[in-house]
Design a protein around this nucleic acid. Structure first.
Lengths: 196, 196
DNA sequence: AACGACACGACACGGTACGTTCCGTTTCCG
DNA sequence: CGGAAACGGAACGTACCGTGTCGTGTCGTT
């Protein structure tokens, strides 16, 4: 997320304080009260310093959220694709269910429509790579015979992610473990079943 | 969407001018430039008049968008559930692909995180009723033997809507007809296939 | 060790949109 | 025909935006 100067003289202290302050504000007062001015005040930092390294508050939160999501939803391979997908989706659901990460991601998504740069960054730096990883995990299962050869793996990933994140956008209560398991099972079934 | 006074003396002329101006601004200048002040100026209306009947600009656009979506995606029953679902989803995709409705809906979704009232209204007045209608259409197919008796119909609806709308949020290029057909087929397969 | 470049905190600026209030006018119900 | 209510217009203070300026301090360079 580092933007232009990319200098070695950047203050790591300020960077951490900014990211942490942004998340704290998100927890305590909600995304709507996360403003550049509030972040600067809480972090003991000049607004100029924030604008020097990030183009918007969405970009600040994307950097903070991105690390958390990657940690919370690793792509493991235990050999059981069903169990692995359940654990993966459950990780995302759990992360989204607790402040500041749920509100932070909702807020980031809410900026996309008027912030082309942020939208591109979210896709290129977070969504697309993770979709690729998910496809990779499915392909591995495919090679082990758990998924038929001709299956539409990219579509499968969308059918997994789509409901989870769209529900988050609509602010419906998050799914429980059983719902996740049912979703994963249905997606896998749709790949295995004979053509329509 | 009428809020408090609910008076018969309300100016229908102003109401129409406000809704149309909001959509026009969305088309011409983008959702970001749709402000209460801009709507009022274009509609030749006082800001007070807008605030009297709607709590926010999101509520104004929701009223305008809601009518359009309901018109564009009817739930028909030709007896072929696959064809009907394809037509239904295609209607939604097509509506979202053209201004002002695509940007308008993205903008409405972007307000949900800081506007509890708007979120509730969207769910109660648009999303939930349409989910129910979709379930109803699936149940009809179920009674005709096109879908097994024990199928999880609510989940099926989420698997249909989730990918379409989440892609819209992420601003990925909209799906083509073939992708829609594949999605519908997979969802129907997941209902028909034997348990995992 | 001295220099010079650059990130830093601070503060002030004009601009925009917010949501509210007041006023005088118009419209329509009773 | 009288009065209540919605109306358009204008102005208000507040909040945050993104930018500019300035003096300070801290690093690399020589």
């Amino acid at each position: 997320m580092i933007t232009s100067p990319s200098s070695v003289r950047r203050s790591e202290r300020s960077r951490r304080a900014i990211l942490q302050s942004a998340l704290d504000l998100c927890t305590e007062r909600g995304y709507g009260h996360v403003t550049i001015e509030a972040i600067a005040a809480r972090a003991g930092v000049s607004k100029k310093t924030i604008y020097r390294w990030w183009p918007s508050k969405g970009a600040v939160l994307l950097e903070a959220f991105s690390d958390a999501l990657i940690d919370a939803t690793p792509f493991v391979d235990t050999g059981d694709i069903g169990a692995d997908l359940r654990a993966h989706v459950a990780g995302a659901v759990k992360l989204l269910s607790v402040p500041p990460f749920g509100p932070a991601y909702a807020g980031i998504l809410s900026e996309l429509h008027h912030d082309d740069l942020l939208a591109r960054r979210l896709r290129e730096e977070l969504v697309d790579p993770r979709v690729e990883e998910a496809i990779g995990r499915l392909r591995s299962a495919q090679e082990q015979g758990q998924i038929p050869p001709g299956a539409d793996l990219p579509l499968a990933v969308e059918m997994l992610y789509g409901p989870v994140y769209y529900r988050h956008v609509l602010r419906k209560p998050v799914q429980d473990e059983e719902t996740i398991a049912t979703l994963v099972n249905h997606v896998l079934r749709s790949l295995r079943a004979p053509g329509y």
